[in-house]
Computed example of a mutant assay.
Amino acid sequence: MTSLPGSINPETLEAAVATGVITAAQRDQLHALDRNGRLAVGGDDESGEENLRLIGGGNDLFVTVGTILLTAGFYFVLITLLPGQPMWIAALVALFSWAVAEIVTRQHRMKLSSTVLSLFFVAAFVVALGLEVLERYPIRTPESMWQLLALRQQVSGAGYLFLGGVMAAVALYFWRFKVPILAGVFAIAATLLAFLQTALLLYDGVAAGSIAPPRLEDMPELLRAALYMPLICGLVVFATGVALDIFDRERRKVWSDCAFWLHVVSAPMLVHPLFIMATGQDVVMGRIEPDANATIMLAVLITGFVYVALAIDRRSLLVPTLAYFGSLGIYYLVNSAANTTGIPPFALILLVIGALVICFGAGWQHIRRLIIGTTLPTSVLDRLPPIKKA
């Protein structure tokens, strides 16, 4: 077993067993903790920081390049040997990625290489399963509304098989290799499955007569009501991420890295519906009225997301929020100033977002200690990621 950067050397552990410092069972427990993603003694973990253990060093980056070249070479070989059989090619690429991961991930725990291999596996499996589902449930473009309504059974069967299969494969791969990014992939697949189930329930309600079919003039309100679905899914994914953060509040296990990706996935699903609902944005045309109420609600949303991100110590929740508000919301807030000063709105947006990113990046822990440490009770702080001392 090779030693991980910052971990106890295996030879040292064997010498400790030989001299009676620790028992063989304790040595095996240390190895198990290392494989499960916990940083070993002497690691580079820094309490209070949102460390994303994505790159394991220069050797990891070197192996990642080799992994990409190896997989690409294998893919082109398959194209030559199996022309016109994309499903088999994708399936073999998925199996090949799994086999390489047995060495790169399972034995050596190379972080970036493991992430790339997991994405190769998911992409290849999705293609293979998608082609199999399309062959089993041929779905043609409907030419009329009646043909669209008649596709219910095909769409439901294909959707359940495809999304369920992806979730099962991702869960199996994660169980074997503990790659954190797969938590985000699983969350996306589960969200799509929730959307599919909601659409089918609405279809069944309309078909049974318990739900009135929408009229054309009801479409804007219907689209606005549809925002509750991504909002609910975003809250579920966010709550799962927070639960993992609480479970691993010292951020020494793989679960905190999984939480990072869950927050990345949940942020857009939370920000977009809340922004539209709070500001009165036109769902169809993508416009808002830059009045006083929209300005106030936008400021409240930004403040709320900043506070939550500080509380759970997750910049991964704040960055998509600032990016979204910067591209859609802050433009309307600074547009009036641009009209009076002649400064391009894009320049003002860059100034505002850049200042916020630098401010929170450079003084994150100080701001967190100042705001969160003084506004939340000790009983809550004891369950959140610890606040780094000055």
Score class of each variant (00 low, 15 high):
residue 226 A to P: 08
residue 253 K to D: 14
residue 258 C to T: 00
residue 243 A to H: 01
residue 257 D to M: 11
residue 217 E to G: 06
residue 229 M to R: 07
residue 226 A to D: 11
residue 232 I to Q: 06
residue 232 I to R: 07
residue 250 E to I: 01
residue 210 S to G: 05
residue 214 P to R: 04
residue 239 A to N: 03
residue 232 I to C: 05
residue 211 I to Y: 15
residue 250 E to A: 10
residue 216 L to Q: 15
residue 209 G to M: 10
residue 225 A to W: 04
residue 245 D to Y: 03
residue 234 G to C: 03
residue 216 L to D: 15
residue 224 R to A: 13
residue 215 R to Y: 08
residue 237 V to G: 01
residue 252 R to A: 10
residue 250 E to P: 03
residue 252 R to Q: 10
residue 229 M to E: 02
residue 206 V to P: 05
residue 245 D to L: 15
residue 258 C to L: 09
residue 261 W to L: 03
residue 248 D to C: 02
residue 248 D to R: 09
residue 221 E to H: 10
residue 260 F to M: 08
residue 255 W to Y: 15
residue 256 S to E: 07
residue 224 R to M: 15
residue 226 A to W: 13
residue 260 F to L: 12
residue 209 G to V: 09
residue 258 C to W: 00
residue 213 P to L: 06
residue 248 D to Q: 03
residue 233 C to N: 01
residue 242 V to G: 05
residue 208 A to F: 14
residue 219 M to D: 04
residue 254 V to Y: 02
residue 231 L to K: 00
residue 232 I to G: 09
residue 254 V to I: 15
residue 252 R to I: 15
residue 228 Y to F: 12
residue 222 L to A: 14
residue 244 L to V: 11
residue 239 A to M: 10
residue 225 A to P: 03
residue 204 D to H: 10
residue 246 I to N: 05
residue 205 G to I: 12
residue 248 D to N: 10
residue 207 A to P: 04
residue 256 S to R: 09
residue 207 A to H: 04
residue 245 D to I: 10
residue 235 L to A: 12
residue 222 L to M: 13
residue 228 Y to H: 04
residue 254 V to M: 11
residue 233 C to F: 01
residue 224 R to I: 13
residue 208 A to G: 03
residue 259 A to P: 12
residue 223 L to T: 08
residue 263 H to V: 08
residue 207 A to Y: 02
residue 254 V to E: 11
residue 260 F to Q: 06
residue 214 P to S: 12
residue 227 L to M: 11
residue 203 Y to T: 05
residue 205 G to K: 14
residue 228 Y to C: 01
residue 246 I to K: 07
residue 219 M to C: 03
residue 262 L to R: 09
residue 247 F to P: 02
residue 256 S to C: 14
residue 237 V to R: 01
residue 252 R to F: 06
residue 246 I to D: 09
residue 202 L to D: 06
residue 234 G to S: 02
residue 248 D to P: 10
residue 217 E to Y: 05
residue 227 L to R: 11
residue 220 P to L: 14
residue 202 L to I: 04
residue 202 L to K: 03
residue 210 S to E: 13
residue 253 K to R: 14
residue 256 S to M: 11
residue 217 E to I: 03
residue 228 Y to Q: 04
residue 257 D to H: 12
residue 209 G to A: 04
residue 228 Y to A: 02
residue 217 E to N: 13
residue 219 M to P: 00
residue 247 F to I: 06
residue 229 M to A: 07
residue 226 A to H: 08
residue 225 A to C: 04
residue 245 D to W: 07
residue 209 G to C: 02
residue 229 M to G: 00
residue 256 S to I: 08
residue 247 F to A: 15
residue 227 L to Y: 07
residue 250 E to G: 03
residue 215 R to D: 11
residue 217 E to W: 07
residue 226 A to T: 13
residue 260 F to I: 11
